[in-house]
Design a protein around this nucleic acid. Structure first.
Length: 428
RNA sequence: GUGGGCGUAGCUCAGAAGGUUAGAGCGCCAGGUUGUGGCCCUGGAGGCCGGGGGUUCAAGUCCCCUCGCUCACCCCA
């Protein structure tokens, strides 16, 4: 188990984790701010919950039989012997927070957070990945489901994505699902010898999981399997019909996928999933969610309906790369101060300009004019502010535009900020 | 967990059938231009060839082990 081989060099980020360096980090920040702006416009409030929880939050919430809890969760013993877990997904934590604080309903919350799952990394799958998401607690209204799906859909389109699909299904509820599962189990037993090995064993434990097997042998069986939409009770059927009606009214195209079964045990009624068509790798699910009316109760709280989604930041950014949209484009620097005298001007002027609301870098190390200008060029700044003996004596700077075709000119110190603001306006 | 591919400079990669001082492009530094970036030219720095063991007169190259990266399966964002 333990790996104690002496490392060949300096430490590296653990397997499946990644550093995000500038300018990609600027893209991440923009991503989150686009998301928060959207969801806050729809009255979702930010919620922050701990990255660690009592392991029972996930065990009881997500379900012991799920892969995430069964074999992927980072679980460890705390110093006092209690079992903690690193958050593997978002919903259970938010529901725990709801039960602990009981905000008035409907409670509409959004989050951005890392998630941890111990699985083998591959393209689009990491041991630490990040999600933005929303949850609505305390309402059974199918129009809430519609709003939640609308938010996800709108978010993708704001990012500039268009090549993706939305699948929906209903998982039924405690009234109708047991009967459906029996019907499905009966069907699968009759075709057991046609299923793949892994799923033959699942017929008894969790027959619905067989539905999302991608192996051809399973697929050809499940094509013909009983469909849950044909087994929904009256309430679930009405709920689902209203959801579909709402999506249609909003012009959101959703494909009914009777094999859409999500990996967490808590889902009831509406489930949905967004898949990118612009991701070449096999992991192309960019967001998913659904309703979980039994979750709060399963966690030991009062029965409280809920619905929400999670969107994977890494996956969505990969999709954006595939569609050539939402690039990393941090705001450029306004100026780069080049000091040829003693560094005093660079020190004082860069601070003064930043205080005036400008974005400014400067050269260090007293390097040559050529080297500092090269640094200015590389920094992406709109202009270099050169201070040599002449400028210092005249209490001014040479403002040299670096991007456009403007002429270098001498500017008194007191007018630099205005000159730079004018340049910025010109550039935008 | 299981399987495939790959580990040579900061990055992307060359290094035919083992052969002596390990290369290129880009990037970085300096100079050409004693106060002017981008283009160009010249020079320079920078490699336990992932690690360990083995075969051999000789290993970046062949064999074994190991670590790491990557892709795929299961499943998920």
């Amino acid at each position: 188990m333990s790996r104690q081989e002496a490392p060949a060099g300096p430490p590296r980020a653990p397997r499946g984790t990644h550093d995000v360096l500038w300018p990609e980090s600027a893209r991440w920040q923009a991503f989150v701010s686009v998301f928060s702006e959207l969801v806050e416009s729809a009255a979702y409030g930010g919620v922050q919950t701990p990255m660690i929880e009592d392991a029972a939050v996930f065990r009881r919430g997500i379900g012991e039989s799920s892969d995430v809890v069964g074999k992927e969760m980072y679980e460890f013993e705390d110093r006092d012997g209690s079992m903690l877990a690193l958050r593997p997904e978002g919903t259970a934590s938010v529901v725990r927070a709801y039960l602990q604080h009981r905000p008035t309903v409907p409670w509409k919350a959004w989050y951005v957070t890392p998630m941890f799952r111990h699985e083998r990394p591959q393209a689009g799958r990491y041991r630490q990945h990040h999600q933005v998401g929303i949850e609505v607690l305390g309402s059974v209204d199918p129009d809430v489901d519609v709003e939640v799906i609308w938010v996800a859909e709108r978010f993708f389109s704001i990012l500039g994505l268009s090549r993706y699909t939305l699948s929906i299904n209903s998982m039924g509820d405690a009234t109708c699902r047991p009967a459906y599962i029996e019907a499905l189990r009966g069907f699968l037993r009759a075709h057991a010898d046609e299923l793949c090995e892994d799923h033959r064993r699942r017929i008894d434990a969790n027959p619905m999981r067989v539905l999302d097997c991608k192996r051809p042998e399973c697929v050809s069986v499940t094509e013909e399997a009983p469909r849950i939409v044909d087994h929904l009770c009256e309430d679930c059927a009405a709920h689902f019909a209203r959801v579909r009606e709402g999506l249609e009214a909003l012009g959101i195209g959703a494909l009914l996928d009777h094999r859409l079964v999500r990996g967490f045990d808590y889902y009831t009624r509406t489930t949905f999933e967004f898949r990118s068509l612009a991701i070449e790798a096999s992991q192309n699910g960019i967001g998913g969610g659904g309703r979980y009316d039994g979750l709060a109760e399963a966690m030991g709280g009062p029965s409280t309906p809920g619905v929400g989604f999670g969107i994977g930041i890494e996956r969505v950014l990969i999709a954006c790369d595939g569609e050539d949209c939402f690039p990393a484009s941090p705001a450029p620097l306004d100026a780069y101060v080049v000091d040829l005298v003693d560094g005093n001007a660079a020190r004082d002027l860069s601070v003064a300009l930043r205080d005036a609301g400008l974005r400014v870098d400067r050269g260090f190390e007293r390097r040559s004019l050529k080297a500092q200008l090269k640094g200015a060029d590389r920094s992406g700044a709109l202009a270099a502010l050169i201070i040599g003996p002449d400028e210092a004596a005249a209490n001014s700077v040479s403002l040299r535009p670096l991007r456009g075709n403007g002429e270098q000119r001498l500017v008194p110190r007191t007018e630099i900020a205005d000159a730079l603001r004018a340049l910025r306006k010109e550039a935008s």
